[in-house]
């Protein structure tokens, strides 16, 4: 009885509601400060401009273009993805969240928040990329599929790392150092798949690569869900 009286309203809600609550909270915070969005946009647009300036009108192969595209997305993502956990630790709100919400809900809420951040990023960066460079617009549907899988992969692999570095005493470059080895296999496959799609391959020809990307998302999210509570409740 006593336990019930101190329980917070959200504690008997279903997992979906809790995930949604964490997600909405982060979204609201983000809209208040716009730190993540500003960082991610400015980084993305700056790097895109650098590429566009330095390349001029040079005709590039799809191989180079696909590498450039994913480098821009990766580094822009790196600039803001850790924020979602670092902010909790720095503002001292992590403890409150820990007490009120179960770890899985926190992880999933943050995962979806990072996902939204990245989706907004690519929906701005991608049209600009097509404008600035001569990436082929044909087969755009196939490219969008690869892109969505890529965004899912990036979020799935980095959200747990973000939680790890928020707990480390030195943060600095640690996020990139820890994320790159885990993201590199995905990046290799993403660049190969984008290159093939831009060169005119059908989905059937890249199906193996897409399977790889999908399998990676599933495994990363599963592993994260199993491991997150250790990082979070330490």
């Amino acid at each position: 009885m006593r336990k019930k009286s101190i329980a917070l309203p959200a504690s008997n809600a279903g997992l979906t509601n809790k995930v949604l609550a964490v997600y909405v909270k982060d979204l609201r915070l983000e809209l208040r400060s716009r730190y993540g969005l500003n960082a991610i946009f400015m980084f993305g647009i700056s790097s895109l401009t650098v590429i566009s300036f330095s390349l001029g009108q040079a005709a590039l192969s799809t191989k180079v273009l696909s590498a450039l595209y994913w480098i821009v997305v990766l580094f822009s993502a790196m600039s803001a993805m850790a924020q979602v956990f670092v902010r909790e630790e720095e503002s001292g709100t992590a403890m409150a969240l820990r007490l009120t919400t179960e770890p899985n809900a926190v992880y999933l809420g943050k995962l979806f928040f990072n996902l939204s951040l990245l989706v907004i990023l690519v929906s701005v960066i991608t049209p600009l990329f097509f404008i600035f460079t001569d990436a082929p617009v044909e087969g755009i549907v196939n490219f969008l599929l690869v892109m969505i899988l890529g965004v899912l992969d990036l979020c799935a692999a980095t959200t747990l790392i973000a939680a790890i570095i928020a707990r480390a005493s030195v943060k600095g470059a640690l996020f990139a150092v820890l994320s790159f080895p885990i993201l590199l296999p995905v990046l290799i496959v993403l660049v190969a798949a984008t290159d093939k799609v831009w060169a005119g391959s059908s989905l059937a020809e890249v199906s193996k690569l897409l399977q790889f990307l999908l399998a990676y998302v599933v495994i990363m999210v599963t592993a994260s869900l199993m491991l997150f509570k250790f990082v979070w409740e330490d």
């Binding site: 747990l160 820890l178 990082v231």
Partner: peptide, 20 residues
């Protein structure tokens, strides 16, 4: 090398090791 507290270092590196 980035985590000073011994218990926390053990936890974080254990999680990273399994994740990787």
């Amino acid at each position: 090398s980035a985590v000073e507290d011994e218990d926390r270092r053990a936890t974080l590196s254990a999680v990273y090791s399994i994740f990787a």
